[in-house]
Design a protein around this nucleic acid. Structure first.
Lengths: 145, 145
DNA sequence: GTTCCTGCAAAGTATTTGCAGGAAT
DNA sequence: ATTCCTGCAAATACTTTGCAGGAAC
């Protein structure tokens, strides 16, 4: 469905970051893309285990941390959950948070970002320099989509 | 400095929520108000221990959870920290997040809220009903304030 | 007197770390 | 050949739970 990076592309992108291409890392990247947005480490581990049961929990965590350090993933936390989630979208964007289940869906809107930029340009916060703004939009999904 | 609730007020507000007034609960509420915004359970525990070393960790956690359930506190999580924080301000508001240290400062602006309300009124998100919006404003504090 | 709360210790969940062997380069 | 990565097990951080005694009402 969604265009996934080929093995070669993964290879290249890992190399580019100075990382060795290991089956574990390839599996984990594939898992994140297959799982859609914002899986937890646990979800990634389960997915990866289907094909490769030998991969250890420690490796999953270490790898995710490495990817975050290298700027391949972003780590995010939600309001009401214990576990961290990992986001493969690196550009700044916002999230819809379901108050029913713990779903999180990306929300991007350039017009909104411009509006915010303007607003804070006109309303500087004393002694604070803004780097980025992320909206947590809480609510409920309708039509069970 | 900041107007704190007297013992009697605390008493009344706990009673109002159907909670018994215990020294532990009074200490914990005082701690949260003294510590300013968004202390972690650990910070609250340390503070409380200065006056009352006997209070247990379990009680701190249980009490905080009770307060959250009763709507006396709100539990929040930050981007890069493991531990939850507790916020005594219940009305919807936003937060400044320091990218230097792990500081979090409240930010409220009615004009901003109106702007957002208008924006999302005009740009409905398909199949999603918004309940609340919180901004995470990341950046750096200047003038070491 | 009844119900609720506290403290202890143990358990649970999420995550990190040290280290030795093994794989990628 | 060297450097980096993985897996194991143990450790750590944060939080929850069961239960019995004690406090608040």
């Amino acid at each position: 469905m969604k265009s996934k990076g080929s093995i070669t592309q993964l290879h290249t992108s890992l190399n580019y970051k100075g990382l060795r291409v290991t089956p574990q890392r390839v599996s984990i990247l594939n898992a994140i893309h297959s799982l859609g947005n914002h899986p937890t480490a646990e979800m990634i581990k389960s997915f990866v285990h289907q094909k490769n049961p030998a991969i250890s929990t420690a490796t999953v965590y270490k790898t995710l941390e490495t990817f975050v350090q290298k700027g391949i993933l972003r780590k995010i936390r939600t309001l009401d959950e214990e576990a961290a989630r990992y986001d493969a979208i690196l550009t700044d964007h916002h999230h819809l948070h379901s108050s029913q289940d713990h779903r999180m869906v990306d929300y991007e809107n350039e017009e909104l970002d411009n509006l915010l930029r303007e607003f804070f340009h006109d309303h500087r916060i004393p002694d604070f320099k803004i780097e980025s703004i992320r909206l947590e939009i809480h609510g409920t999904f309708e039509n069970h989509q």
